[in-house]
């Protein structure tokens, strides 16, 4: 039997303890006493400055880390500047899933088209990232984790494909997976911007 009053008065704890001991009471009664007493340890903890400290920590962490999360790879930025300087003839390609033929190694022309499409995706992603970044920060925590995890997985795929393509540039299969990953990232960022999942 739980005696709520005994939680409030230490003397009552002692009396109950004394009684239980004198009665040679059952293990269950003694367990109940210990559990009741343990519950009384759930006192209000006060740490008025703790959140301020945590917030400081997180902001510092954010400044050093969160920026890199959405920052395009250095090589990409250099490539983007390079394209802007010399690429006056480069036309903006429409966003649509590119059709890669079934041949396993791409011809020169097809490869150029695919690379151009990849660049269009990358440019669109860079723009979308700027819009998505503040939105993701305001999301409900679990949803934010989810999107960050998803984007991290896609980024990893893109990075792996990029690494593989540097050694096997004309392989149609890898190009297809690279485009799929870029498209997935673009759609995910669009979803974040539109805030509709």
């Amino acid at each position: 039997m739980k005696d709520k009053n005994s939680r409030k008065h230490p003397e009552a704890w002692a009396d109950r303890f004394k009684q239980l001991r004198a009665d040679n009471s059952s293990e269950i009664a003694r367990d109940e006493f210990i559990l009741d007493l343990a519950k009384s340890l759930q006192e209000k903890e006060k740490a008025p400055l703790l959140w301020a400290k945590i917030e400081n920590n997180l902001r510092e962490e954010k400044q050093s880390k969160a920026v890199t999360f959405f920052r395009p790879h250095l090589l990409l930025r250099v490539a983007a500047v390079f394209i802007l300087v010399i690429g006056t003839g480069v036309l903006w390609q429409k966003f649509s899933a590119p059709q890669i033929s079934n041949s396993r190694i791409l011809s020169k022309n097809t490869l150029q088209k695919v690379i151009s499409t990849e660049k269009s995706y990358e440019a669109a992603i860079a723009e979308l990232e700027k819009l998505a970044s503040p939105k993701i920060e305001k999301m409900e925590l679990e949803l934010m984790f989810l999107y960050r995890d998803k984007l991290a997985i896609i980024d990893e795929q893109i990075e792996q494909c990029r690494e593989e393509l540097s050694e096997n540039p004309g392989n149609a299969h890898i190009r297809r997976y690279m485009l799929a990953a870029l498209q997935d990232k673009k759609e995910t960022l669009q979803e974040i911007v539109q805030n509709a999942i």
Partner: peptide, 8 residues
């Protein structure tokens, strides 16, 4: 940050 504060 708000989400973390809510959690806290």
């Amino acid at each position: 940050m708000q989400a973390f504060e809510n959690l806290y």
